[in-house]
Write a protein that binds this DNA or RNA. Structure first.
Length: 221
DNA sequence: GCGACAG
DNA sequence: ATCTTGTCGC
């Protein structure tokens, strides 16, 4: 798929933070979804020894959740992992993988936060600006925000707040497992983001697009 | 100053 | 995140 070049990636952490503050103003935190036929999942795998990484994007049919396409991209990761600056480490590879995609997804589930970020520009929101598509942030753990304990049962949830601001939702997708941290990435509202994640689950903790992207990044697909 | 901290 | 088999629990 075609991707517009918003900006370069060669910058210092403090420049990256300034850029995040600017880009956050362009994020669309609402929007009605179009008809969904294809849903993509994206994830990045990192080697512990070499500085190499591998991004994987999978496209699944909706609501069947059948694998339609896999696109991967490998390379060296230049930017270090710094909490709050994840996209500057993972996005260059991720965008290469999206460029190789032939089937254009209607919606993307990204492994990581969207608005649930100190400057409201987690990797899911950042990705949404590049792709100009609806993106949902679907993280496996918390970056920021507070929430009250949720029930152990599948489907239970709790709102995630940063001070008084609602920034996401903590959702148990399966009984007895740790919850997921869902937040708006781009061009979607929190309610729709949560219902889409729930509709993409097939008995596992992770929704199928994210789960299969994780497998594809580890070359298990 | 100290602890917390997506992947 | 990565390295990794069996093992414990629902």
């Amino acid at each position: 798929m075609k991707i517009k070049k918003l900006h370069d990636w060669d910058m210092t952490p403090s420049q990256a933070i300034a850029l995040q503050r600017e880009l956050a103003q362009k994020v669309s935190v609402c929007g009605t979804l179009p008809d969904i036929h294809l849903v993509a999942g994206a994830d990045v795998w990192h080697s512990r020894t070499s500085g190499m990484g591998r991004a994987a994007v999978v496209v699944l049919s909706y609501p069947d959740m059948q694998l339609v396409e896999v696109s991967r991209s490998e390379g060296h990761c230049h930017f270090p992992y710094i909490p709050g600056l994840l996209s500057f480490r993972e996005m260059p590879l991720l965008l290469s993988a999206f460029e190789g995609l032939e089937n254009i997804p209607d919606l993307i589930l990204m492994d990581g936060q969207g608005l649930a970020h100190p400057r409201r520009l987690g990797i899911a929101s950042h990705l949404g600006l590049f792709l100009n598509k609806p993106v949902i942030g679907c993280a496996k753990s918390r970056l920021i925000g507070e929430y009250t304990a949720l029930d152990e049962s599948a489907g239970s949830f709790s709102d995630l707040y940063h001070n008084t601001e609602l920034i996401g939702r903590v959702m148990r997708t399966r009984q007895g497992v740790n919850p997921l941290f869902i937040s708006v990435g781009h061009k979607i509202c929190l309610e729709e983001a949560c219902s889409m994640v729930a509709e993409c689950c097939r008995g596992y903790r992770l929704p199928e697009p994210t789960r299969q992207a994780h497998l594809a990044a580890a070359e298990l697909i």
